[in-house]
Structures are given as C-alpha cells and as structure tokens.
Design a protein around this nucleic acid. Structure first.
Length: 836
RNA sequence: GCCGGGGUGGCGAAACAGGUAUCCGCGGCAGACUUAAAAUCUGCUGGGCCUCACGGCCCAUGCCGGUUCGAGUCCGGCCCCCGGCACCA
C-alpha cells in the first residue's frame, strides 16, 4: 500500500471533525476567559503550577506530557469548584539563546521572542489552559528588575557575597562553563575539550547557612515524591563529626582534619592533604624541597576537574613532614594525594586504612602500615572494616563502641582543645556569577574608594544593553560595552565601574512563582498579602531533572524571604508531582538522538484530544513510558466511537435534566457501571493515574455499546432506557472533559446543553452510592487455595448459607476426598477457601 | 560502590488494603458489511494437556527459599534492566 502524497498530513479516514471542533472551542475558552483568575472569587484557591520552560523553540510529545497532566488537573479542579490559578511563563535567559544567535546571526532577544511565539502556539494547539494575562518572561526588564532586587535583598542580609572560587574554563570555547555543562571526566559539553580550573572572584549566595532548615523542612514535604526528598537530603549531605588538631613538624600552626570516625583515631597511620591545601603550598615553598614533590603537586593541581571520579587511580607522595596524632602522641607521615578534596571538610584527613576503603587502597599501594582499631562483632578478620564495633588497640578506650566511643574520644581531646565537634555539609554556596551576556546583570558598582556598592533600588533595573558583541572571548561580554561599564558610585559620586557578570538563570527561576500573582506590578516584586494567600503552590508539576537544583534554590530563596518577613510560608511547593519521561526506542527523546515525535503532524492527523488521550493512556504518569505511534490510533478510535454514539443517540434521548429511571436489569447494570466509573475516575485523579481513568472510560463506552446493541431495546425520549443512556453519555462527557476537552465541549452541546455554556462551568460528577448497590455477587470458591467454582450469591447471605452453597457444589466436592472440609475461611462478599 | 525505581501475555499495561492474575488498549486470527478495499461492527487471543463436545486438569507475575487457609502483593537471599550520585573523610 503506497500512501498518497501528503496523506500523513490529512485527517485519518473516518474521523470526527476534530479540526473544526478544536478551533471553535479554543476560541470559546478565550472569549469566556475560563482560565483567567478572578482574585475576588469566594471559591477556595488552588494554585497549580507547571515548571516554566526554557523557550527552546519546539516542544515534542515528551514535553507535552508535563503540560497535559497539569491541564487535566486544572480543568478537573475548575469543574470541582475551585478558584484555580494556572499561569505560564518563560525561563528566557540562558546560554542556548547566545549560541543560536551566534549561529544564525540574530540577537538572542529576537531568537527568544520568536521561540516564545512558537511555543505559545503549540500550547494553544494542545488546548492547554493558562491564564496568559499573567505571563512572565525572565528576560524582560520588568521581570529581571525584581531578580536584581532579590539580589540586593540577599546582599543586605549578607546572603550574597563576593569570594574567590575555581570555575570551569573551556580553553576552546574561551568561556566559563556551568558545572552542569562539564560532562564525563571533566570535558566541555559542547566541544569535548578538557576544562581547566580558573581562580576567579565570584558572587555567591550563602545557601549553606540554610543547610539545616533545608534538610529539616524536607519533613514538611510529605506530599513530595520520596525519591526527590532523598535526592535533596543526599545533596545537602550533612555529616556530624569532629575536627582534630594534628601538631605539624616545623610549624607553629597545627593541621586540622575533619572526620566522622573519631573512634578510629588510634588507627591513623598517616595523614593526607589535598594538593590545593595551603600547607602544600608551604611545603613546596620551603628551601631545599624535593623538586619531584613540587612537580607532583603542581601536576595534581591541574587535574582537579577529573579527580572527582571514584575510578581515578589514587596517587600520592610523602611530603616529608610528620604530624602528631593527639590521641597517642605518635608522629605519622603526611602525604599529598589526589584522593582528598580541598572543597570538603578541611581538605585534610587522618588516614585509617583498617577502617576506610579508600585509605586501605592507598595504604596498600604505598606499603603503609594498617592497624586494626575496631573489632568486627561477627569475628570476621577482613579489612577494611567500615562499620561500628568495639575499639581495640586504643589503650584506655578499648571496649567502647559506636556513639559512646566517639563521644569519649572527643571529650578527652576537647578538654585539651585538640578537637571539637563539627558538622559539615556537602552542599556548597551557590555560585551565581556567569561571564555571559544573556542574563540578568548583577546590580553592583565597583568604586575605587567605596568598594562593591549595591545599585540603589530606585535605579533598577540595570538594563542589559542590546548592542553588545556577545561572542565568547573569555571575558564578560558586558565588559566590552563602555556605556554599560561606566557608572557613578552611588555612595560617593565618583566615577566607577559596573559589575559585568550576569546571574545564573536558576536565580530567575527561584522566585517566579511569586511574580505570577502581580505580574505587572511596577512597584514591587510581589505583594506579600496576595502571595501569602495564594502560596504555597498547591500542586507543582515538572520533570524530575529539576529534583535538586531548581527545587533546592527555590526553597532556599523562599526561606530567605521568610526570614526577611516578606512571606509567611517556609516552603514554596506544598505538593510536587514529577512526571516520567517519554522515550522512543528506549531512550529519552532529544533532537541530538533524532528520535523526537513532533506533535504538530499528529495533531493535524488526529487532533489534540487524541494526542492528550494517548499521552495519558500510555502508562502511569510518574513512570517513564515508551511512545508507540500505533497506540495513538487506538486513542483516536476511542474518541471516534464516543462521537458516533452521541451522533446516533442524541436525538433519541429525553431532555437534559431528566432523572434516570431503572426498569430493567440491563438498565441497572449500565447505571452501576456509570457510577462505578465516576468512583474510579475520582480515585485515579488523586494519584494522577489517568491511564486507568482512560481505561475506565473505555469500559464505560463498551458498556454503552452492549446496552444499545441489544436489538430488542429501543431508545426513546420517554422510556427508562433513554434516561439511563443519557446519564451514561453525560457522565462520560463530563469525566472525559479534562482529558479531551474539545470533543467533550462539542458533544456536551450536542447532548442538548446550551451552546453558550461550557462544560467547564458544569460540576464534575459525583458517584451515587445507591446506584452502585447490587443484590447479587459472584462467590469465588477455592479448595485449598485453588479456584474451583464461581457461585452467584445473594448479597447479605450468612456464613452458613455461603458454606452450604459452596460445599454442595459438585466441582467443589470433586476436590474434597472425604467430602468434608477441615477448615473454611470466609471473606464476606468475596470468597470462601475450603481446606480439604 | 552507594541511593532510588523497575522486571506480569507478542507489545503498552491492570490488579483497593494478602482474596478469581492478565482490566483497558495495541498487535494477531476468524467472521459480518462491501463488487473490492478502507473504515466500522462481532467473536477469539498467556502456555501446555485431556475431551467429539459441554467441560476439565496442570503450569505461569525475573530466580531460590520462607510466612499464610490463600502471595504479583509480605519477609530473607540472589540475578538482570533503568535513573541519580559518585574518592564527601
């Protein structure tokens, strides 16, 4: 079969007229403003938030899942009587705009704007309902003005500070890279060149001072996926331990090491410092130092980016210096090695090869002594042994174990000021400087006399100049704009220079959810009172790829604002839903893999409703799912079927509002199915299990099909069958509405509801318990756990009746050797298990 | 290595809270309608076996074991796949 030219662009044969329907109802929603928030509504508030996207230009069906899930929720909540806020905006600053602009020779602003237009058109095509009157774009001066304000607020409280830090530098691209742009063993994501570290003075946000509350308040986030909370907990990486002083040969200053295992102190047979440690500099600066050692340390310092990987071979050299173990007075050698990181703890460790796998590996390769000081309670002599156990070979501490052992050693050393309890976190302060053009300028002016002076709030925004050569050359592009750099010191009025770095785009996205409430307010970033009413966000929906960075930063900023008294809540997002990704051919969809499914052709061929139904039906929303083009056709068939039933029977039904009347068994069965479907839909919605909702709706359609297929039954506006069928079709329509909103609107109208109404001003159905009641059920009879019979039973039958019925069944008797039961278990209303 | 998620028909998957495993859909097979095809509709569709048939039996939720009247579900021990973190002292 050879498809006609362009057949993929046409509607599938036999389709309902979705193109016309979808266009009409989208226009209607815009006219009615059903997604426009009414701040004065008395209904209870519901803030449903999709993570705002980076405007990359085109979305594929994998992105679509996120917004479809959010939209189903929004529409369900609207029908269920909530005052829903559903905003959308653009995380519009960032590197890709610069790169694309360089390639295409257009300005990043232009590229970004045209992408936003494209993506808005896509959202519209999918029928995603947003309150576009609240749209924000982080690259707009009306927005980044307040990002800069946020910086100033943090600066005022000492939460923004300037410090020296090593940053990733790609020599080939001649630019600084973000951590997440360094891949593998330290290569530039774009060109594959090995990055190097450069010491630069940078701006930081002091997120580490919130480490404890960021950690503790994870307990408040019971409605977040456990997985995300664990990832955050690990990222913060809090460990309790101690700092210990080791007297250093030839130096007044002692060496401070951090350990969580002070109970193994007697097993320290050497110590190690990172190559970047100040003591290493002192060592190589000494007269007569071994030239090989100097060369070694210098070489290691250049390999920092790839040293993080665990599979790097441990390398180290004896520094020639000895340090003194404060517990036993022993002088042990000090090594410089690549397996100790300057950024963690104090950059120095005591090495206990008997009880640490890394030290063990190193000690073995260097032939260093290994001394057991913790016994393994199981008696296993294998080393390294890293778990708890009683201390041995530790003099007066022998026999103590675990926390008691740690406390005892610490107490004794602390008395001599040789140790102190210490908590360390893996979390580092947030480096927000970027030597990039397309971002929010950091609102700081450098004055020769006054130093770093914040730009006064009244002078915000510090506008990003548009006429800048932003090609990466290694400096900050803004530094090339003389008119931008030239400034006057706000303090003393003398000539000064502007900061030319821009902020990390994660700063932009760490507060946008506050801006949606008053997006055009030119007097403040957000209104405290309004924000306090509307936040925390009731439901946040987004990809798990933001589990750490964005969500941690947003939590941090919220806590900082709380401490400033600007918001009354400690956590920004009450509930989080992280949807799974959609794969094609087993891998994540991406342009570079060439496996994206573009939604536009699908929509032209099958309509947006079909794409929505299939996207939801593909599997549980939180799990990854494989996209199958065939499955789309199945979803389309389902909607066609719904359409045909309404076409066929709409004119034969009683008018809307007619109460259902049951006169026959078949009518009772259909009513029961109708209400059971409502029950299931409500239950599924609570867990975002829309795949089973769609399955339930398909079952209802099958039940309707069975009901009308009975040739003997006529459907008329006057008979009971008509009333029950109307109820089933209306229920189907209302339950379908959040999922396939366009077709639902159309059939709702065709079922006789006024054309100017919208199904979204109609209440989502509630199940009628009475309609679900039955008077008989199928009793499952097991003999010794195996199903042997199904017997129809009257609801409410007594245990005696049930047992009697079961035992008198010949299929049961056949499996009872002596015809008698040794024991009987009865689960009322379900089954009996007869033990032979 | 550590942490998390998962493994059920040919495929996507379902199974509230330990109680009929495989809902729903895809694909396949057969039939109806049609000059024909498409579309649509109907029936069947986990594997093996017995039976002319009605029907019945056995096996099956990654593997091995356990708890239980009863296990996809709970417990112990393994194997494999996916994701995240990764020398964090």
């Amino acid at each position: 079969m050879t498809p006609e030219k362009g057949s993929a662009e046409r509607s599938a044969p036999g389709s309902y007229p979705f193109a016309e329907i979808e266009e009409r109802w989208k226009r209607r929603w815009d006219e009615l403003g059903i997604f426009r928030l009414d701040l004065s509504s008395p209904k209870p508030k519901y803030y449903c938030l999709d993570m705002f996207p980076y405007p990359s230009g085109d979305l594929h069906v994998g992105h679509g899942r996120n917004y479809i899930i959010g939209d189903v929720l929004v529409r369900t909540k609207i029908m269920d009587g909530w005052n829903v806020l559903s905003p959308m905006g653009w995380d519009a600053f960032g590197l890709p705009a610069e790169n694309a602009a360089i390639e295409r020779r257009i300005h990043p602003a232009e590229w970004t704007t045209s992408n936003i237009v494209k993506m808005k058109r896509q959202f519209h095509a999918w029928g995603i309902g947003f309150d576009w009157s609240r749209e924000v774009a982080s690259c707009h001066p009306g927005y980044y003005r307040w990002t800069q304000w946020l910086f100033l607020k943090l600066f005022e409280r000492g939460l923004a500070y300037r410090g020296v830090a090593p940053v990733n530098w790609c020599p080939s691209c001649a630019t600084v890279l973000a951590n997440e742009q360094v891949v593998g063993e330290g290569d530039c994501e774009r060109c594959g060149t090995r990055v190097v570290l450069k010491e630069l003075e940078q701006w930081f946000f002091r997120i580490t001072s919130y480490a404890d509350s960021l950690l503790a308040d994870l307990d408040l986030l019971g409605e977040w996926p456990e997985k995300v909370r664990i990832m955050q907990r690990n990222w913060i990486g809090r460990s309790e331990g101690a700092e210990i002083e080791f007297e250093t040969e030839g130096r007044a200053e002692s060496l401070t090491v951090f350990t969580t295992r002070i109970d193994t102190l007697f097993g320290a047979t050497y110590a190690v410092i990172a190559p970047e440690h100040p003591l290493a500099s002192w060592i190589i600066g000494r007269p007569g130092v071994d030239a090989g050692l100097v060369e070694f340390i210098r070489r290691l310092r250049g390999t920092r980016p790839e040293r993080g990987a665990a599979d790097v071979v441990k390398e180290g050299r004896d520094s020639g210096i000895k340090v003194r173990n404060p517990a036993n007075g022993e002088w042990i050698p000090l090594f410089v090695a690549n397996y100790v990181l300057m950024e963690y703890g104090t950059g120095a460790i005591m090495a206990v090869p008997a009880h640490d796998a890394r030290d063990h590996e190193f000690a073995q390769s260097q032939g260093l002594p290994i001394r057991r000081v913790i016994a393994n309670p199981s008696g296993d002599p294998a080393l390294p042994y890293e778990d708890a156990g009683p201390m041995v070979n530790s003099g007066r501490f022998d026999g103590l174990s675990g926390d008691a052992a740690k406390a005892a050693v610490l107490k004794e050393l602390a008395a001599g000021n040789l140790a102190r309890p210490m908590v360390r976190t893996r979390l580092r302060d947030w480096l927000i400087s970027r030597q990039r053009y397309w971002g929010a300028p950091i609102p700081i002016i450098y004055c020769g006399d006054c130093g770093a002076v914040p730009v006064p709030e009244s002078d915000l925004p510090v506008r990003l100049p548009l006429d800048v050569d932003f090609r990466p050359k290694g400096d900050s592009p803004l530094a090339r704009s003389e008119s931008f750099v030239k400034a006057v010191c706000p303090k003393c009025g003398r000539p000064a220079r502007r900061e030319t770095d821009t902020m990390d785009t994660f700063v932009d996205s760490s507060w946008y959810f506050l801006r949606y409430l008053t997006p055009r307010d030119e007097t403040r970033a957000f209104d405290t009172e309004t924000v306090n009413h509307w936040l925390p966000v009731d439901q946040y929906v987004g990809g798990v790829e933001h589990a750490i960075l964005h969500l941690l930063y947003a939590r941090f900023i919220t806590k900082a604002l709380y401490d400033m008294g600007l918001v009354s809540f400690r956590e920004p997002f009450q509930r989080l839903f992280a949807q799974g990704m959609i794969t094609k051919g087993g891998v994540k969809m991406s342009k570079s893999k060439g496996n994206v499914v573009p939604p536009d052709t699908l929509i032209r061929r099958f309509g947006a409703d079909t794409m929505r139904v299939y996207t939801l039906f593909i599997g549980p929303s939180e799990k990854d799912a494989e996209w199958e083009d065939r499955g789309v056709e199945g979803a389309h068939r389902f909607l066609n079927r719904v359409w045909r039933f309404v076409e066929t029977y709409a004119a034969k039904l009683p008018p809307p509002g007619t109460a259902p009347r049951v006169e026959s068994a078949e009518e009772r069965v259909l009513r029961r199915k109708t209400h059971d479907t409502i029950r299931r839909a409500r239950q599924d919605a609570a867990h975002f299990h829309f795949n089973t909702t769609v399955a339930a709706l398909m079952e209802l359609v099958n039940a309707i099909s069975d009901f009308v297929a009975d040739g003997a039954r006529e459907i008329t506006p006057r008979n009971a069958a008509g009333t029950v069928l109307r109820e089933a079709l209306e229920t189907l329509t209302l339950l379908l509405a959040p999922i396939a909103p366009h077709i639902a609107e159309e059939i709702w109208a065709r079922l006789g509801h006024r054309a100017e109404e919208t199904v979204f001003r109609t209440a989502w159905p509630k199940a009628d318990e009475a309609a679900m009641e039955t008077d008989t059920y199928t009793l499952v009879v097991q003999v010794s756990g195996k199903v042997r019979a199904q017997i129809p039973m009257r609801v409410g039958a007594t245990t005696e009746e049930v047992e009697h019925a079961a035992l008198s069944d010949e299929r049961v008797q056949r499996h009872l050797p002596d015809g008698r039961a040794r024991n009987i278990f009865h689960v009322k209303g379900r089954l009996v298990n007869i033990v032979a």
